[in-house]
Design a binder for these strands. Sequence first.
DNA 1: CCTGAAAGGTTCAAGCCATAAATATCATGG
DNA 2: CCATGATATTTATGGCTTGAACCTTTCAGG
Lengths: 136, 136
Amino acid sequence: MPAAEREICGLVNGLASQIGAHVRERAVKLGLTAAQATALRELTGPMTMSELADRMDCEPSNATVVVDRLESRGVLERRPHPTDRRAKQLILTPDGADLRKRLLELLSEESPLAALTPEEQGVLHDLLQRAIVRRA
Amino acid sequence: MPAAEREICGLVNGLASQIGAHVRERAVKLGLTAAQATALRELTGPMTMSELADRMDCEPSNATVVVDRLESRGVLERRPHPTDRRAKQLILTPDGADLRKRLLELLSEESPLAALTPEEQGVLHDLLQRAIVRRA
DNA sequence: CCTGAAAGGTTCAAGCCATAAATATCATGG
DNA sequence: CCATGATATTTATGGCTTGAACCTTTCAGG
């Protein structure tokens, strides 16, 4: 791997850190951690643990911990899945839905990609999508 | 923040995860964790804790922990800094230098950006560099 | 001098994260 | 029906990561 590629990897990680900081900064205003905020953001509707972990881009075992905290805080509930007794269905409580709404507003305030024009963002999007290895 | 930007953020995090997995996969062959491998990779010569933390893109307190493990493994030494008694100088042991050499070889084997042509990598490099907010 | 602000490191608490192993349930082929 | 493998989730463990608090040393003014 040439030095140029290693430099790109560093930049990718740097930008990812920047995005993470952006989320963390806003999440803390609602008493949430970055991971909890990510989970809440991805909970667009009832879903299973696996699906949430997939959307959060993390291992299911990690999602368990994050959901534990959100549940004990009253943000969501773990209900038995209607058709699959192995799975659980995550449902936002009314309080959780309110919290999610406020979170989305906070996250919308500023973009961590503000330095790029929409055209540049388009190019970046395509490059990233092609760089990512498709996994089964 | 429009949905398009959120999607880009997801892609950036996805690619960062992929890069992290690439490092971890190779580091484990040497009995190292990803963070330890990153530290070892960045130790291009004697440097202070601050400088290493800066290169690793992490907090100094985190570098302390990672260096602790590398030190107790005999990979490096913490020496008093020649001119600043607050600082410490990190020096690779002979074993550490060997290990670093083998690590660099492993990391060179494959690129996590192999799906992109050199030209595309150039474009990506520029976009990322511009997207990253300069911090003092 | 000397005093206060700043910088280098470490420690601590809280939480994130991946891996491996365990449990329970499904689904398929014989 | 039953064995076997796959899937959904959890637990346990080791290590990473941040942010705040703390100590020492350095440095810039007064």
